[in-house]
Design a protein around this nucleic acid. Structure first.
Length: 277
DNA sequence: CATCAACCTGATCA
DNA sequence: ATGATCAGGTTGA
């Protein structure tokens, strides 16, 4: 199935916003719902194998977002952002499943991208459905009532919180779907009622699952970058607030560009690359 | 409201 | 090789 969409798969799937994508000999393999999908970059979009649900794929890639408009808007912020937008014009935000996004970002607490990936895959292999080469992300019931052994997932102190979340979603105490129609602040507040979800994780979920473009998650990398490039320091709320103030209509996209720039600069020590103004 | 130790694992350093 | 150090958010004091 051919998807025509302005998107850079490497930047979009490889920078840590979603945790189930693996690049295997030039193609991106991931799991959407109960299907293993494989994506191959093309000039005008990508080739998609493993699913026929075009609507779901377009929704996942937030095809309705007008990247030209968004990046034009972001570019007006300053020269640094303008260069980032120009360098990675196909970096998109994704629209992830609320339950899966909530659960994976609960695991993401105090862990680097590589470790998050290994914890998430472990949970899928332990509790999810075997789809062949990969496993589905488990439903709350599969975790809460399943016969898998959580100890094998090596979640550390996230283990108790993870099991508690699965249980509270199964019982309806926390209902990811019910947050769909809330505004950013209410959504964030609801998420932070969950044990193990603080400001940063709540901002990530608000952005990546519920599409709140004004969310500006501040992790360790963003915190250093805001300090080094913009001279912004202080508490989480101060830095996040400054991000929302500074980056106009699309702080979430700006954050993703900034985060991606830190991935690039740490993975390739190239001369003549991007550097602060 | 700000500060800070404790929490767990895997990677990297000495 | 083995032990020390570090990276990474949330919680509760």
């Amino acid at each position: 199935m051919r998807i025509e969409l302005s998107v850079d798969l490497d930047a979009t799937l490889g920078c840590g916003q979603a945790h189930r994508w693996l690049k295997k000999n030039g193609r991106w393999e991931g799991v959407l719902g109960d299907e293993i999908v494989t994506l191959s970059q093309r000039e005008d979009g990508f080739e998609c194998e493993g699913t026929s649900d075009k609507e779901a794929v377009l929704s996942y890639f937030r095809a309705e977002d007008d990247l030209d408009e968004i990046y034009a808007d972001i570019s007006e912020t300053d020269g640094y952002m303008a260069r980032l937008a120009e360098a990675v014009p196909g970096l998109r935000l994704l629209r992830q499943d609320p339950w899966e996004c909530t659960a994976t970002y609960l695991l993401a607490v105090n862990a680097n991208v590589k470790r998050i990936g290994s914890m998430v895959e472990a949970v899928c292999e332990e509790f999810g459905k075997n789809l062949g080469r990969r496993f589905s992300f488990p439903e709350p019931e599969e975790i809460d009532e399943g016969c898998g052994d959580i100890c094998r997932c090596r979640l550390g102190y996230r283990e108790g919180r993870f099991m508690k979340l699965a249980n509270s979603v199964r019982t309806g105490e926390h209902d990811p779907l019910s947050l769909t129609n809330l505004d950013y602040q209410s959504c964030r507040d609801k998420l932070m009622e969950v044990d193990g979800i603080g400001p940063k994780v709540a901002d990530c979920i608000s952005l990546f699952a519920y599409g709140h473009m004004e969310s500006f998650p501040v992790d360790a990398r963003i915190s250093r970058l805001m300090r080094d490039i913009y001279g912004v320091t202080g508490s989480y709320s101060k830095v996040a607030e400054e991000g929302r103030r500074r980056f106009g209509k699309y702080p979430g996209y700006a954050q993703e560009l900034l985060y991606h720039s830190t991935v690039i600069s740490t993975s390739q020590a190239q001369a003549g690359g991007l550097h602060p103004v």
